[in-house]
Every structure is written in C-alpha cells, then in structure tokens.
Design a protein around this nucleic acid. Structure first.
Lengths: 227, 227
DNA sequence: TTCATACTTCGATGCTAGTCGAACCATTTG
DNA sequence: CAAATGGTTCGACTAGCATCGAAGTATGAA
C-alpha cells in the first residue's frame, strides 16, 4: 500500500469484510479465540490468523495466550469508539434509516459497548443520573457526586472494590444508536456486570444485544426514572 | 469486494491513501475543487474523479457545482467525527506519541474540526463555559444559558442570526488531541468565523491548523479564562 | 466562434491483498 | 507416548482495485 496518512492504514485494516466482522464481534468486550473469530469472519483458520496478525500489527487488537488457546480483544475503547463512529456514518447516510428488524431493535434498546451498557437503557441511566445530580459533568470529566455514590451503593455496587486508577470511574461514551451519551468507565463496567448478576438482563451468545427480562426492564426503568 | 458489514465499506473508502488525503483536506470544512483534491491526493485528475465518485457514492462527500468548477465537501460532521476517531486510534496506539514537529504542535493547539474550532484552544473554551455556567450539559444536549448568551453576545456573535434549526446551537464534539470536548454546532461555527473575522487567528492554506496571532492568543486566553 | 480549462468516462495495465492447501509448531487429552 | 486440537507460516493463485492515457462533455474567457 502506498504511503498515505495514518488513518488510511487504520481504515484499510477495518475495511476488509473479514476483519470488520471480527472487530464487530469483539466490540462487546469479548475476548474470542482465533477459531471463534475465524468463524465470525467466515474464513479458514489460516486466513483468520493472517488477518489477526495484521490487526495486532496495527494495534487494533491485543492477544492473550491461555494454553493452546489464544484470545484476542480490542486494544482499547478508542477502537470501539471508532467502530461506533463508522457505524454512525452509516446511520447518518441513511443506510440504517429503516430499522432492519427485531435484532436491531434489541441492539438499540440495550447492548454492550466494549465493557459497559449502551443503547436506550444506557442513555436513560446517564440522563437520569445527570438530572438527579448523581453525576456532574465538567468538560469531558464526569464525576460521581456524593448523592451519586449513595445511589450506586444502594444499587449494590461496591464502589471501594472498583479500580482506583485508570480507567476513570466515570466516563462519557457516545452512544451511536441514541446519539447521546451513556456511562463508560469502571462504574459503567460494574453496572453492566451487576445487571447481569442480578439476572435483570443477559447476554446472548453471538451478539452484542443485551436482553432484559420483563421484570429486569421494569426494575431498570424504575431505577433510572428521572424523579 | 465481498459482502461484509457496512463499516467495512465505509472504512475501505477511507482506507485508500489518495482518498484519505482528500478527506483529511476536507476536514477543515473547506470545499475544494476536484483539481485541488487531485493535487492533495497526488494523483491525476481522472484518478481523483474516480475516487470522488466512490466517496460520493458512499455518502462521505457532497458535490456542489459552480459553473465549470465542482466543489466537494464532507457530507456531514459524522464523517469528520469518524475521521477524528480514526486519528484517535493512531494517537492511542502510540503512533503519534512522539510529537513529530511544529506543525503537529500547531494542530494540537488550534485547528479546524469540520466547521468549528478544535484543539487546546477549543477545549479551554468549552471547559470555561461549563465552569462559568455559560453552558449546561444534560446528557448529549448542550444548552446555552442566559449568562452564556450574554457572554457570546458580548464577544460579538449575533445569536439571532444563527440557524434556528439543525444543526443544534451547541453540540459537544470529541477532540482527539485533547481527549476532551470542544464546542460544535452552529455556535461553534460562528465562534470560529468570528475569531478569523477579528483577525485573532487565520487559517493556513494547506492545513487544518489555525494560527493565532500573539495578540489574538492573549485575547482568547483571557476570554476563556475560568474566572 | 475558438480556445482554454475543469471534469467525466472508458479501457487497459499492473500490482496488491485476500484466500486456501500444506506443512509445521505448541498444547492438551487419553 | 500418540492423537487431537489450536494456531502459525509459507507459497501459489486470482480477483479486484488504483492508476493513467485517451477521448469526450461542459463551462468560461477572449
């Protein structure tokens, strides 16, 4: 490939269908094996291995070896963010203007973005916490207020157990389906884990969609009401 | 190209060096002719025409004819946003960790992001307006407060002359060099135009860098101080 | 009107990148 | 230990894409 701006290299890595499918499969903060990714991409293992090498070379993914299994995960949430931005172009260009089907409705409602909750369910949490002064926004920085800390403790999150250093406790993350923000950071991650632990929602095998149970959704809606 | 997720198509369009150079040239919200873009890309006019057709087909750019001249601009700020997100990957992967030279310092300080100011100068404005309660953030929505309206009027922006409908008056836009937000929307656009009109800064011909004069910078720093 | 300039389209060319079979290495299991 | 499984590397092949010369269309200027 001819010399060009660095974004050309990154974009060309994403621009191959097999690799794009792999990256998409990894958005939900899953670490998948090379074999699983080969299956996601619909290519042979050797082709997948070749592609994974390129993605790793380009710093889009990170490998982790466990015995004979080798797991790959996105290198960071900048990658997830860029993938979502690319999806945003599709959305804005009208390619996704017509809602394709139930599965995409599910993605719009709740899905995993890297390691935290995204979609309508997520943005309503963020909005609710802003309006109830549980979160305070200053520029990019998002802080948990004292009232907010009480709120999440009541929800069942052990704040003291969260990583004290990077990633930040709270972080705004742009939600492409809602065009608004949802909560990232270690708190966002903990909330997603807690929702799953409570059985309010569960993850499906081959998708980023997070499926709330009827009861779980009711409880979540109540929790995130803007009172 | 094999069928793949839509982001593969979009990314593959960006992933060609010639096209990436064109898109980069257009980030500064310039509308450039096909000849100018051919020059930016370092290809012949016929090759450029071919590429521009593909970018237009993919809804990344919009053409506008003026006599025998045909101008192309980015299709919208989602495109600029995605391009900046791709730059963010490069930055995060350490490819730009070592500051290459004065020009990139200039880009970090002040540059044009589509149609509004970005870089350090821009994020300090956003932060300042947040902390001085000139801007109010609720989720993704950013509102100009009464005090904020007074502030920008004092600065010389005719608020009533701004477009009443889309784009929104205020909009948060992620700044890749600063990893924080700067102000987009029609107000952001107006502010950039006003800075240039006042002579505080000027745009260079072949770059997104916005060069503040010494006086302009001092005035800007004072305006955006967080008092 | 003619000439110059901006841009588009077509066809041919060459290079690159993705693909898979084969062979190999690493780890686990029976 | 051998067999099975997960993964890597190499080589050959081919499809596809970017490129430019040539020819054509559209617009502006003299």
């Amino acid at each position: 490939m001819k010399e060009g701006p660095h974004i050309a290299l990154i974009a060309s890595l994403i621009g191959d269908p097999a690799r794009a499918n792999m990256l998409t499969a990894l958005i939900g903060n899953r670490a998948l094996t090379a074999s699983e990714l080969a299956h996601e991409a619909g290519v042979t293992l050797q082709t997948a291995s070749f592609h994974l090498g390129k993605l790793e070379q380009g710093s889009l993914i990170c490998p982790r070896k466990q015995g004979r299994h080798k797991y790959f995960a996105l290198a960071g949430d900048e990658v997830a963010h860029a993938l979502e931005a690319l999806m945003g172009i599709a959305a804005n260009a009208g390619h996704l203007r017509i809602r394709p089907g139930p599965k995409d409705v599910a993605l719009r409602q709740a899905r995993v973005c890297y390691n935290h909750l995204a979609g309508e369910m997520a943005t309503r949490l963020f909005d609710s916490m802003i309006s109830r002064r549980f979160l305070s926004v200053e520029g990019e920085d998002v802080f948990l207020t004292t009232a907010g800390a009480r709120f999440v403790r009541n929800f069942g999150i052990e704040l003291d157990a969260l990583p004290a250093k990077r990633p930040p406790l709270c972080r705004q993350c742009l939600d492409w389906s809602e065009r608004r923000f949802h909560l990232g950071g270690s708190l966002g991650r903990a909330i997603l884990a807690h929702i799953v632990e409570l059985g309010w929602a569960k993850r499906e095998q081959n998708t980023r969609a997070l499926v709330f149970s009827r009861r779980g959704q009711a409880l979540w809606v109540e929790l995130t009401a803007e009172r």
